[in-house]
Structure formats: C-alpha cells, structure tokens
C-alpha cells in the first residue's frame, strides 16, 4: 500500500459517503443518474467475486464490503424508496447504459490477462467502470446546474482513479514485474472522461458558485 492508493481509496470512499449522505439525509437523488449507479453495482459485483476465495487484508475485505453494500443500497434507494424515487429524474436519465455492458463483456473475452472465469469478469469490471460515468455526465449536461453534493460526488469519483494512476506509476518504479496494461489503460480512459467535468468544476469552484 502506498500513499497514492490510500488517498485513492479514501477519495472513492468519500464519494460514496457524499452520495449516501445526500440520498439518506435530504432524501433526494436529484441530478444523480440511476443508470450510472446500476453500472457501478455491476462493476463491484464482478470485480469482488474473489472476496470469499482470496483474502488480501482486513482493509481490503472491509472496503470491498463497503463498496458492494453502498452501491447496491444506493440503487435500492433510488428505485424503491418512495421519497427518494420521487426525486429521480427518469425523463432525463435515458442513456442506453445496457449498450455499454455487452461491448465491455466482448472486449473482456478478447483482451484479458488470463482466460479464466474470475479473470474475465474482473477485466469486464475494469472496462465497465471506465465508461460507467457516461450516463451521469450526460444527465449532468441535460440538467444544467447541479447541487454541490452531486458535484462533489462526481469530482471525488473521478479523482479516485486519477490517484490510482499515480499509484500505478509509483508501483511500476518500485516493484519489479509490476506491469498491468489493461488496468492502466482502462484507468486512464476512465479519468480522461472526466476531463471536461474537472474543467468546469474548477472554473465554478474558483468562481465560488455551484457547478453548472
């Protein structure tokens, strides 16, 4: 574990907590894409299949449970909780996210490190996470300005994988044989998708107004 990866995990945890805070306390999911949340639930479900078969550390297992639990509970809240569901913007959240799942699965079947069930699904989760934010970014453009909590959520979610890139650079130079092109390219694509959001976020942040 290095400082970049720890910072990345904490940023990711913070993004999830901000979203749960927003949904649980003010019972609102305005501006949040349910489709992105559903994709993230699939990402964690397919990435952490080894949670019971391979133990890395208490920290690792704990964080996996947090991300699994939070992503599924956010989907549950947005789908079935009356008060929260009422604030869900169904008309605007129309990105065909299922069209992202199949190409990622096909790509994982073609490009992976090992052709085993767990490895292919793990690779699929990497490709899917890279594009999972698209429905949210599209919704963002449609709903114009969003509240600060949603803006912070997206900022933290985009930032965590950027910190992971620093972690991969650090590990590449400090650990022999640490080369994982698939993870690196997927992580880079994922972070680059946030580029224009980051641009507007910093513009608004510097201007001291909400994210528009």
């Amino acid at each position: 574990m290095n400082i970049f990866r720890l910072a990345g995990d904490m940023t990711h945890l913070a993004s999830v907590l901000v979203l749960l805070l927003k949904i649980h306390t003010i019972k609102s999911c305005a501006g949040v894409s349910l489709r992105t949340q559903e994709l993230y639930a699939i990402v964690f479900a397919t990435r952490y299949l080894d949670i019971f078969t391979s133990f890395v550390s208490v920290y690792n297992t704990f964080m996996k449970l947090v991300f699994l639990g939070s992503s599924f509970s956010i989907v549950w809240y947005m789908r079935y909780h009356k008060a929260v569901h009422r604030t869900y913007d169904r008309e605007q959240d129309t990105f065909r996210h299922w069209f992202l799942v199949l190409p990622c699965l096909v790509l994982a079947l073609l490009i992976h490190e090992k052709f085993t069930f767990l490895e292919v699904l793990w690779t699929f989760s990497l490709y899917l996470e890279a594009v999972a934010i698209l429905p949210q970014l599209v919704l963002l453009q449609r709903t114009r300005n969003i509240d600060n909590l949603t803006g912070q959520y997206i900022f933290l979610l985009g930032g965590y994988r950027g910190l992971y890139i620093l972690n991969w650079i650090y590990r590449y130079f400090t650990e022999p044989h640490f080369v994982h092109w698939i993870t690196w390219i997927a992580g880079l694509v994922q972070t680059l998708l946030y580029a224009d959001f980051f641009y507007y976020y910093f513009l608004r942040f510097i201007g001291g107004r909400g994210v528009e």
């Binding site: 080894d50 391979s54 890395v56 550390s57 964080m63 996996k64 991300f67 044989h177 640490f178």
Partner: peptide, 10 residues
C-alpha cells in the same frame, strides 16, 4: 516470472 499477481487493489 509472471506470477499471477494477487489482486491487492480495489
């Protein structure tokens, strides 16, 4: 050796 690196990252 390309030992199947244990997935220690989240």
């Amino acid at each position: 050796p390309n030992k199947s690196y244990q997935k220690d990252e989240l």
